[in-house]
């Protein structure tokens, strides 16, 4: 469960390549096949698409950025020895937390903060934060005890052990958590419109309500492309940012 639903495995880099190739191929095929149709959509909605895409990207970047910013230190803090007594309980809480559907989280954030951009960011932030904290915590806890013992036995200070031994060796699991969390975030971001947070959800939900297929697709296509782009970027990051010695994706 810790590696999440999008958990990366050895075939991952091939997957990302496939996503990219299929994405481009699909886009190209669609462009050719429906040039007139998509062209019409673009003519009608280009201004909305550009404006809402920007808004959408801001929603995703701000909420997931804040989630990483808070989730990393929180996960590190929970994994320290002095928290050991509470960590099991907290882990249970996080497990339950990640089970809660994202729509429910957004709905609950309305009751706290009302309608608008802020509650949308808050809801997305909560939905993204929990898997990050959980994976950072688990990644650090799974670092073999003998590595920490060897480090301590050689005279490393606790901070040095965290920086040079624990974090690098937990990085893969931590990154997998961030990737899962961002995927959840990107998947939930269209719902932000429902609570007044704007974004591409506006075109999708309004399109559904008005039974306007062009408007619907004007939202669906950028959302789909954004999600693929996000996953692709993170997969690349996972491949290149994690040192070779602890990256199962790299030989």
């Amino acid at each position: 469960m810790s590696r999440g639903i999008l958990g990366a495995d050895a075939s991952d880099s091939m997957k990302t390549r496939a996503v990219f190739v299929i994405g481009i191929a699909l886009g190209a095929a669609l462009t050719v096949a429906t040039q007139g149709y998509l062209g019409d959509i673009w003519r009608i909605y280009s201004e909305d698409i550009i404006y809402l895409t920007k808004q959408h990207i801001v929603l995703v970047l701000v909420s997931s950025g804040l989630a990483i910013l808070v989730g990393l230190p929180a996960g590190i803090l929970l994994s320290r020895d002095f928290m050991r007594r509470y960590s099991e309980t907290l882990l249970q809480v996080f497990n339950i937390g990640t089970t809660i559907p994202t729509l429910a989280i957004l709905a609950l954030s309305i009751t706290l903060l009302g309608i608008g951009f802020k509650p949308a960011i808050f809801g997305l932030w909560v939905a993204t934060l929990l898997p990050i904290v959980r994976n950072v915590f688990q990644g650090l806890r799974e670092v073999p005890a003998h590595l920490k013992e060897a480090a301590q036995g050689m005279g490393m200070t606790p901070l040095h052990i965290l920086r040079s031994v624990e974090l690098p060796n937990a990085l893969y699991v931590m990154f997998a958590g961030i990737r899962t969390a961002v995927a959840v975030n990107v998947g939930t971001a269209p719902l932000a419109f429902l609570i007044g947070g704007g974004g591409l959800g506006e075109l999708i939900f309004t399109g559904i309500d008005l039974n306007d297929m062009q408007m619907l697709l004007a939202g669906v296509i950028p959302v789909g492309l954004l999600s693929m782009l996000a996953d692709y970027t993170l997969a690349k990051g996972q491949f290149w940012l994690i040192p070779r010695g602890v990256n199962p994706l790299r030989p």
Partner: peptide, 21 residues
């Protein structure tokens, strides 16, 4: 910490750090 730096330490699980060369 200073003491440990002056004493060599070898463990059964070897404990080489996988993230370092």
């Amino acid at each position: 910490v200073e003491l440990r730096r002056s004493i060599g330490y070898v463990i059964q699980q070897i404990g080489l750090f996988p993230n370092m060369t």
